[in-house]
């Protein structure tokens, strides 16, 4: 059976197979009008995943400069700037707004109920109110979501694999985000079943990382789950260092952390999510109604383990973890 390449295959297939069954041949049908696309993200600037998104769009026949115009709005971690940026995109009369993570999606939805919004990533689109249901989003929002709250249990488990005597686990994220709130509730419940405690460490900006860790150290947190927020992502090196420094077992949501030195991550491939987002953008450019496009979930969640980082931290990776790791960094 396929493994890693399967996902790329899936992503490629997802982008290739279209709604009415007609295989999209790249350039021919797309190159007529100039399309306008707006990207709204909390990131500070372009990232690899954004590139993947644009590459996938090219396979659909949308080439920036030829028939595509991309308006990029980087909030750089400033949540308060999101509404203005969203309004800006609306004024720019884009055909679709692509958002990364929940806050921009919410801001975009606030800014317009007409312009289609494609969520490249979002945690629990239903419970945040972005869509009515996965099968029928209603409204003008659709895209990819990954049911963040459901993944909490697994993350807790992974933390326990690394530190079996874990007593207190922290949720390192943004308390203002609804999915995180829900995730934290789930975490608390699950932790209770294994006799552990859960705390929410609210870090909305990178500057508060240090204080967050200080709080964790003060409260005897020995494990933490790092929420998949853009802020966290942008400050991943800092977080890894701090976690190592404070000897907190950190379970990340995406493999970028593990590649950078984190020990273990569990989550979907975010590049795949962006590939999926491109698929939605293509459908919308062809005239599909976002209300009719069901929200999609990632097919695969991968567990990535960094043995080297674990050794450095003096952590032992149990066999059960190694067995289920989809990727092992030595």
């Amino acid at each position: 059976m396929r493994r890693r390449d399967f996902l790329t295959g899936v992503g490629a297939t997802a982008s290739v197979a279209a709604a009415d069954g007609s295989v999209c041949t790249a350039t021919a049908q797309r190159s007529q009008r100039m399309r306008r696309l707006g990207l709204l993200t909390l990131a500070a600037g372009p990232a690899h995943r954004h590139e993947v998104f644009e590459t996938t769009l090219r396979t659909f026949g949308y080439r920036e400069g030829d028939n595509l115009l991309i308006e990029r709005r980087y909030a750089a971690g400033r949540f308060d700037r999101l509404p203005a940026l969203a309004a800006d995109l609306v004024r720019a009369n884009v055909d679709v707004i692509v958002t990364e993570s929940t806050p921009p999606a919410l801001a975009a939805k606030q800014a317009t109920t007409v312009i289609p919004i494609v969520m490249a990533t979002s945690g629990d689109a239903v419970r945040t109110g972005l869509v009515e249901s996965l099968a029928r989003p209603g409204g003008n929002v659709t895209g990819m979501t990954f049911a963040g709250p459901e993944l909490v249990g697994k993350k807790l488990e992974l933390a326990r694999e690394l530190r079996p005597q874990m007593r207190r686990i922290a949720w390192f994220g943004n308390a203002a985000t609804v999915p995180e709130q829900i995730s934290f509730v789930e975490l608390k419940k699950t932790a209770a079943t294994v006799g552990a405690d859960a705390v929410f460490i609210d870090v909305r900006v990178a500057e508060s990382f240090a204080s967050g860790f200080a709080t964790m150290a003060a409260t005897g947190v020995d494990a933490m789950i790092v929420a998949e927020t853009t802020v966290n992502l942008e400050g991943l090196d800092q977080i890894i260092a701090l976690a190592a420094q404070h000897d907190v077992v950190a379970v990340y949501g995406r493999r970028e952390f593990v590649d950078a030195g984190g020990v273990v991550s569990h989550g979907p491939d975010f590049n795949d999510l962006f590939r999926g987002a491109a698929f939605f953008v293509d459908r919308i450019f062809q005239g599909a109604n976002p209300a009719d496009l069901p929200v999609r979930l990632p097919m695969k969640f991968e567990i990535v383990v960094n043995l080297k980082a674990a050794r450095l931290l003096g952590l032992t990776i149990p066999r059960s973890l190694l067995v289920r790791a989809d990727a092992v960094i030595k």
């Binding site: 279209a18 709604a19 009719d292 496009l293």
Partner: peptide, 10 residues
């Protein structure tokens, strides 16, 4: 179905 939306849309 090749168009997954149809499936997801029940």
């Amino acid at each position: 179905h090749p168009d997954i939306s149809l499936v997801l849309r029940n």
